[in-house]
Simulated scan of single mutants.
Amino acid sequence: MPELPEVETTLRGIRPHLLKQKIQKVVVRRPTLRWPIPEDLPNLLLKARVEDVSRRGKYLLLKFPHGHLMIHLGMSGSLSLAAEGTAVGKHDHVDIVLESGWILRYNDPRRFGCILWIEGELFEHPLLASLGPEPLGPLFDNEHLYQCSRRKSLPIKSFLMDSKVVVGVGNIYANEALFRSGIHPLRKANRISKKRYARLSVVVREVLAAAIEQGGTTLRDFVGGDGKPGYFK
């Protein structure tokens, strides 16, 4: 499953090509993802200009003057840039054609991802409202982990992977961070000291930053926005 480094890698790959671009056409070949793609999406995006491209947790956010397009890659999805005339693959479900001629192509073999249109307050959407802080942001530190864990008797690995505690720390990154911190993954979250959380919070940042720098994981299904596979080990 693409986690924060994979999504950040995708963001960095597609953002320069999308900013300030006007949408020429949207082709939806298969609308049945985790939730149905809005039927009127092609009309909503037609001739609209991309104002910004960002990320919240594992959700990619394309900002338009009249709303946001929210994309989640699910278990095996990917976004890549394709040149005009590039052959369409079996699992290429959506094409967003830009005025530059590039195509933002959404591929999702398992169809567990989503493409949703949001109007109004973006971060009040149910999928975003309860998310924890970004692990590379200023709100994530040992104090946050320590306070959140006081009434949590679940294993520290499960605690660390809870998106309400912190976003984007998936299985491979939780394992690596706990190993480097010398914490057993089955140890209860509320039995870990603030001092050990101080070490863990630093290591989580280091592991994720290294993964982003190297382009994500070696997960079989993951490719970045430039179509190249991730290679974090």
Rank of each mutant, 00 (worst) to 15 (best):
M1A: 15
E3R: 06
E6C: 03
V7I: 14
T9K: 04
T10G: 03
R12E: 15
G13S: 09
G13I: 00
I14F: 04
H17W: 12
K22G: 06
K25G: 07
V27A: 12
V27C: 12
R30K: 13
T32P: 00
T32G: 08
P42C: 04
L44D: 10
L45S: 08
K47A: 12
A48K: 15
V50K: 03
E51S: 01
S54M: 08
S54G: 15
R56Q: 12
L60M: 06
L61Q: 03
L62D: 01
M70F: 00
I71M: 01
L73T: 02
G74S: 12
M75G: 01
S76D: 13
S76L: 07
S78H: 01
L79I: 02
L79R: 02
L81M: 15
A82Q: 15
A83V: 09
E84R: 13
G85W: 09
T86I: 05
T86F: 10
H91A: 07
H93G: 08
V94L: 01
I96A: 04
L98W: 06
E99D: 15
G101V: 08
W102A: 12
W102T: 11
Y106N: 06
Y106A: 06
Y106S: 08
N107P: 00
N107H: 14
F112C: 10
G113W: 04
C114P: 00
C114N: 14
I115Y: 04
L116V: 13
E124D: 15
L127Q: 13
L127V: 00
G132A: 03
P133T: 06
E134R: 05
P135K: 03
L136T: 04
G137T: 02
P138F: 04
L139A: 15
F140K: 05
N142G: 14
N142P: 00
H144V: 02
C148N: 13
C148I: 00
C148F: 11
L154Q: 15
I156C: 08
K157D: 01
K157C: 02
F159Y: 11
L160I: 08
M161G: 09
S163L: 00
K164E: 13
V165L: 08
V166G: 01
V167D: 06
V169M: 08
G170R: 09
N171M: 11
N171R: 11
I172H: 12
I172G: 01
Y173N: 09
Y173G: 06
N175R: 13
N175S: 13
A177R: 10
L178D: 03
R180T: 04
G182F: 03
I183T: 03
I183W: 01
H184L: 12
P185D: 04
R187L: 13
N190W: 05
N190F: 02
N190K: 14
R191A: 14
S193R: 06
K194Y: 06
K195C: 00
R196I: 12
L200P: 04
V203W: 07
V204C: 11
V204D: 10
E213N: 09
G216L: 05
T218Y: 09
L219D: 14
F222E: 04
V223C: 04
G224M: 06
G224T: 09
G224R: 06
G225C: 03
G230C: 09
K233A: 11
